[in-house]
């Protein structure tokens, strides 16, 4: 029964989040702030992870491609497909669920226990809309850019490691990443990214918004947000993949 309560309360919260803002200009300013905070602030982490994971994928490919019938350029092709289809949209979103999700849950949770949310309500402000909508909108806008950057850096990491380790030549890798390219895969990947961005921000905000208690509860809400976000991302990944690729 508890799960029905949470689902119902989540949708009621979302109804408040997407109701008409008091002042569009203030909300717009908040969205810009959140784009910087949630998006640009995660760029460094995403860049490092993408470059190294791209390199690892290429090395693992070279390690497994022992059959002489498989052309060397398949290394570039395999790295590209792994990164575009799964690594960048899903794994990076899982990482963002940890970084951004826990940040949102603890920020909103702290505002709840220090009565800052009550203060907004007393002023006559829709606290759910003011605090959550800019985060959701910002993530849904900026995450596709982050994931696109991640794709480029992942493929670049694979190129560097492939060439540096002698697994392939520069020409073979570049030929591989250009071979059998399906533009629809990018649409599929970015669709997933936008859905994941909504899940990460809204679920984390829900966890923080309904906190009762003290600092201990803020920590628990932060952990819960990462766990629920991870599970929901994996389920959504499966559903979207089935709907769009099969």
């Amino acid at each position: 029964m508890q799960i029905i309560l949470h689902i119902g309360r989540y949708f009621l919260l979302m109804k408040r989040v997407f109701s008409k803002p008091e002042r569009f200009s203030i909300y717009f300013r908040q969205i810009i702030y959140e784009i910087n905070s949630l998006g640009i602030g995660s760029l460094g982490l995403i860049a490092i992870i993408s470059v190294f994971m791209g390199g690892v994928i290429t090395i693992q490919g070279a390690y497994n491609f022992t059959n002489p019938l498989i052309p060397i350029y398949a290394l570039g092709l395999g790295t590209r497909e792994s990164i575009i289809l799964e690594f960048s949209p899903t794994i990076v979103s899982l990482i963002l669920a940890g970084k951004v999700g826990s940040n949102i849950a603890s920020e909103i949770g702290t505002m709840r226990i220090t009565e800052q949310i009550d203060a907004l309500e007393i002023m006559g402000i829709n606290s759910a809309g003011y605090l959550i909508l800019p985060k959701v909108a910002a993530a849904m806008f900026i995450n596709p850019f982050l994931i696109t950057i991640s794709m480029f850096l992942g493929i670049f990491g694979g190129y560097v490691m492939g060439v540096a380790s002698g697994a392939c030549t520069s020409y073979q890798y570049i030929f591989g990443i250009q071979t059998l390219f399906v533009p629809f895969n990018i649409i599929y990947s970015l669709t997933k990214t936008i859905a994941f961005a909504y899940i990460i921000t809204s679920v984390a905000a829900y966890q923080g918004y309904y906190i009762k208690g003290g600092a201990l509860e803020v920590g628990k809400a932060s952990t819960r947000s990462v766990v629920y976000n991870s599970v929901l991302i994996l389920i959504t990944n499966l559903v979207i993949t089935k709907l769009m690729l099969l």
Binding site: D118, A119, E121, I122, M123
Partner: peptide, 12 residues
């Protein structure tokens, strides 16, 4: 509520 001001215990 726009006509209300409130001072919370912790300031908020």
């Amino acid at each position: 509520r726009k006509e209300i001001g409130m001072l919370f215990q912790g300031g908020a």
